[in-house]
Computed example of a mutant assay.
Amino acid sequence: MDGKITALIMAGKRSGIMDPLATRAGVSQKCVAPVLGVPMIERVLKEVAGCDQIGAIHIVAHEADEIKALPTARALSAEGRLHFKEGKFNIVDSVFSGAEGASFPLMITTADNCLVTSDGYAEFIDKALSAEAGAAAALARKEDVQAADPEGQKKFYEFSDGGYSNCNTYWIGSDEALKAAEIMREGGQFVKFPKRIAKAFGWMNLVRFYFGWGTKEMIFEQVSKRFGFKLVPIVMSRGEFAIDVDNERTFEVTERLLKKRAAAAG
């Protein structure tokens, strides 16, 4: 896939924990639970595959068989474009597993990102390339997220230039940037463990972030210095890209927004 971006779709499951949305849908993992009648990962896979900048697609999963049986997965596998990689115990090892045999840059997204479109992925890739990012994270403005749906997100990262929400879409520009993910290995639920954040990013960066001292660009620049490569915040044009299917509330929000989108499309 010369000149194309490799996409990693993270479709793992928590060890020993059955997701409530999967239980309700009668499936073994959340990523194949239907949203508005279509399995989550089927939606995501279609949008990722429909982005012209993306070539090879790697799905990182603990249980691949349910996913392989889906129509889009079958078609892309037959084309030789889709490859399955083994999900590991933690997110960092799962990313390393997904990156095996891949060419850089990598774009990482999640199997529950049901509202991100092919155009959204293209926007993120174009902005990452334009910024010459070593690594990047997609963000949406608080006001855009709330305008999309007031119930879409409850928590935001606050910087001096405003509030932002994570869109669960990331960029890794090189093998060097991928190796830097090692520092995140102990992270787990990062926001709940400030000492782990401090170990990764430094105490001053943690203080700046906690008190909202500095713009997002300033914070990312400071973290870039610690990592040794350019880490870039990429602001997306649509607030709904920050809403993924985490629970019953966001499930209902996602279905509501998908219905609205379908009605607008005629």
Rank of each mutant, 00 (worst) to 15 (best):
I57P: 10
A99R: 08
D112I: 10
N90P: 05
P105I: 10
H83L: 04
A102N: 03
G120F: 12
I108Q: 08
D93L: 09
M107V: 15
S94T: 12
S118V: 05
D65P: 04
Y121N: 14
E100N: 03
N90V: 08
D93N: 12
A75M: 08
N113S: 06
M107T: 11
V95S: 04
V60C: 05
K85C: 13
S118C: 12
T109Y: 01
G101S: 13
H62C: 06
L70C: 05
N90R: 11
K88A: 09
G50W: 00
G101Q: 14
E63H: 00
G55I: 03
C51A: 13
N113I: 00
Q53G: 09
K85V: 08
S103A: 15
A61K: 06
A75H: 04
I108E: 11
E100D: 12
V48H: 07
G120Y: 14
A78R: 04
C51H: 09
T117W: 12
A75V: 02
C51Q: 03
D119L: 15
R81H: 07
E47M: 01
V116P: 00
P71S: 05
S103P: 05
S77A: 04
T72E: 14
G98V: 02
L76P: 13
A69H: 07
E86Y: 00
G55L: 00
